[in-house]
């Protein structure tokens, strides 16, 4: 894994020698010195992800799609462009494919290589999403994974589609609108949309059990 041009540097050795706190400080310090990073940039990014970006964005998009058929079509056509109509995100920032659950279909999102995830709409991924166990089992045995780890038991006639997110294309699940919600307005519907349903480890819409 070591390239010829960096053969003097052994990150494993480096990591054994220094705690990550010092390593990150060193990176930040050098990058600021080289004017590749402004001193505020790091704080700004942290504040944005801690305070502004989270699964509420995705929930708003889903609730709009549940109440507006034309919007739903636009969302399935071009995910980020449609999302930017509802929440404050850059419609060109990433390519997002929104995949819609149906009575006989269930979608599940994973990143098998690392942790690609639609941050702008869901915030940062949960811990389990980044584990080798989730990343491999989602592909090899999604039905068992959902049942054993997430208590999501899908009927055998519901087909599971697994989508592998990459840095070029990320996925988000459009869950089914739960039954008994006909009288709810968009704001009330937002509260029903969980992060896990938009990843696909939970199933809304009465398809469970």
């Amino acid at each position: 894994m070591t390239d010829a041009d960096e053969d003097e540097f052994d990150p494993d050795e480096h990591a054994r020698e220094h705690d990550p706190e010092a390593r990150v400080r060193a990176l930040q310090s050098l990058l600021i010195e080289k004017e590749l990073l402004s001193s505020d940039a790091v704080d700004d990014v942290i504040a944005t992800y801690e305070d502004e970006i989270g699964p509420l964005n995705g929930a708003r998009v889903v609730a709009r799609a549940w109440t507006d058929d034309a919007y739903r079509e636009r969302l399935l056509e071009d995910g980020m462009a449609a999302a930017s109509e509802v929440v404050d995100v850059d419609g060109d920032a990433i390519d997002l494919e929104v995949v819609a659950n149906a009575p006989d279909e269930h979608h599940l999102v994973v990143c098998t290589l690392c942790s690609c995830y639609p941050w702008a709409l869901l915030g940062l991924p949960p811990t389990w999403y980044k584990t080798p166990a989730y990343r491999s089992r989602a592909v090899k045995e999604p039905r068992t994974l959902l049942a054993e780890e997430f208590d999501t038991d899908l009927p055998s006639d519901v087909e599971i589609h697994v989508h592998d997110s990459t840095s070029e294309l990320r996925y988000m699940v459009l869950p089914q609108r739960p039954p008994g919600t006909a009288g709810m307005d968009e704001d009330e519907l937002v509260d029903l949309v969980s992060r896990d349903a938009m990843i696909g480890v939970e199933r809304l819409g009465g398809g469970e059990r």
Binding site: P20, I46, L124, P126, R137, E148, E149, F150
Partner: peptide
Amino acid sequence: LAALKDDEDAPVFHAPWQARAFA
């Protein structure tokens, strides 16, 4: 795997150095 599950209100970052590394 489920033991790692946290609720959606869990902190975005679990340590300042992790937040800085991300940012």
